[in-house]
Design a protein around this nucleic acid. Structure first.
Lengths: 202, 202, 202, 202
DNA sequence: CATGAATGAGTGTTCATTCAT
DNA sequence: TATGAATGAACACTCATTCAT
């Protein structure tokens, strides 16, 4: 039943379709992997959500694992370093509590990836992300001795906040916004970094 | 993975001993579930590690899920409330960084359970454990307003420390012991709870 | 914890216990096999009903199959031949509709066994029972030609009545008693056997 | 059992043909379920007979149970009501004894289903089929009182004939054809329905 | 190129049965 | 002897993935 139309379809349009399908698969994968974790998500689930055939996943991404890797590579976690240094921690917290992560099921991607941390290389990617994006930046800011440890302790706090907000869903933190946390951010960040830090972001 | 040790352990002596078999299954399950999460662990893996037939899991525990529940119910949450109140946070941190959790793959059970948090009722159990053991105890200690939020923020810190230590394995925190953290514990706990807290445990 | 009592227990009493256990197993097996069929019944079900350990089944009967054979060997289907010949069909029908077969789940054993007729030798045992107890007796009574066919047609009727009563559970037949059927028994039996038959049994 | 014939059937031609595969699975299922009953038949048996992979059963039918339901839903109950009313019973008997039921292992589907009557909903389907196809039609024909009971008694006869022919395999009935039974059909049907019935079908 | 039929390894779970104590 | 721990084959069913068309 292939008609002339099919043959005449310009390559540009095909390419656009292909990209659109790829994008929808990525989007569906992001959501599923975030919400249910790697193991509990099947390629058929993802394909179903995207409304396409499951084999396209292998065609476009090679394997479930490769799709996972691409889907969970954050779309760029914003320019945390842009802005006044004394507001860096506040910006990081904002990333966790105020940012719109609906594409990841409402959780910070790092938190969502913890759900798949049974696999060694997911663990590795989390590690790199945490070290690079959080610890390193904070260590550069810290003053005095033990800067590495204190930078990690502050990073731990923010990761913990993300966990309690979404996975554990404790009552007060789930509802809190950056502005509610501002004074405590200022206190803890100042105490751990050894220099005056602000809890607000502008 | 790492089944050799388990298999080699007194193979002849423990035959036809219900309690011993049960215990070995629990032990193997604890380790596997902690390391790889619920979904990535098969009952055959566990039985193999324990050196027994997989059907005994159903005989003794009913189902994989029930085995999981029993294996991840911490054997003893320790008596965190025993001891001076100003050392409570230090005792909690000690639970995370100094306690011997080799039975759970070297991680605090709560952290290990996060790996299985794709399942709603695991999430529920984590929530109850965190709220009951950490948040509630800390809120009773906090002074001033907003005690709930500050108790949760401090709980978040400790959960985050556990995660960075084992899952993310950041260099400084992985090696740290409670004594290394003492001054920072004191500072942050005092700041968040609004009353003087100690970083040491005796 | 074995005491002197155990050692002193007289063999006669042990034997009685053994026989009692055997009897309870047989009883439980009869009911289960009749209600659910051979395949859908597990030896653990039977042992559970009898309140004993499942391994006793193998000890006492050798295998599930042998237990089935013993359990479904009718305890003597009564003396159908005793009584006036013209009431034979009525007595047979009475066996199907009025007899108390609660031990077989309320169904005539033959009907119950049909549920296990997937197995060739069950089919064989049904065949022998039907031919011996029903067809042969009726053929001896029939007059004229074609006695075998007519005896079988009459047997088929009674088997069918049993099926519709219990398996199919059609409304009128399930509630009927021999007395309700008497006139029709007389008519059909007389027609098929070529000699006057009665629908009543005394 | 008897898989050789099936496997040898045009192996090369029907590859990658959804409908053909579906049909072969249905055919194999029909035969297995009829011969051995639901419980004694495994999906691997059926797939093996059909010469395809067992997972296709789930792909095409959803579950073993759904395959069973589809396989045992008679392809066409025939137009029993078409034709002279006085030949209705003869047509019914013809359905049982003369129709080619080789697809169901040589037995009337209803009889074959009795083998799976341990399951409540199979029993339900048998009931509906018997009541709808046989009892209701016969009751409409019966004259006088007690029409329900007499219609059921006649239905019982035909079900019984089917059972004795195939399950019990009594010598005379197994070989009989409708024409052999004609006079007896006429006698019994006339007697039970209270109106003249014929034993022939055209 | 893309659809979807096909696959085989793997899942949790139940089974009848055996064997050690 | 009898209890119950142990077993291994089988079950229905799902998975990621391949390959023919």
């Amino acid at each position: 039943m292939s008609t002339v139309d099919d043959l005449a379809r310009e390559p540009a349009l095909q390419k656009r379709d292909r990209e659109a399908t790829r994008a929808r698969l990525l989007e569906a994968a992001r959501l599923r992997f975030a919400r249910e974790g790697y193991d509990a998500t099947s390629v058929r689930d993802i394909a179903g959500d995207a409304g396409v055939d499951a084999t396209l996943i292998f065609r476009y991404f090679g394997s479930k694992k490769q799709l996972f890797d691409q889907a969970t590579t954050a779309d760029s976690p914003a320019d945390l370093l842009a802005g006044p240094p004394e507001e860096l921690v506040a910006r990081m917290v904002r990333t966790v509590v105020d940012h719109d992560w609906t594409a990841y099921g409402g959780e910070h991607p790092l938190v969502a990836m913890l759900r798949s941390s049974a696999h060694e290389d997911t663990r590795l990617r989390i590690r790199e992300e945490v070290c690079h994006t959080y610890v390193d930046a904070l260590r550069d800011l810290a003053e005095g001795e033990d800067t590495a440890l204190r930078a990690e302790l502050l990073s731990a706090w923010m990761v913990g906040i993300g966990i309690l907000r979404s996975v554990v869903a404790t009552p007060a933190l789930s509802e809190a916004r950056t502005s509610d946390l501002a004074p405590h951010i200022a206190t803890v960040a100042t105490a751990l970094l050894g220099r005056p830090m602000s809890g607000n972001t502008d």
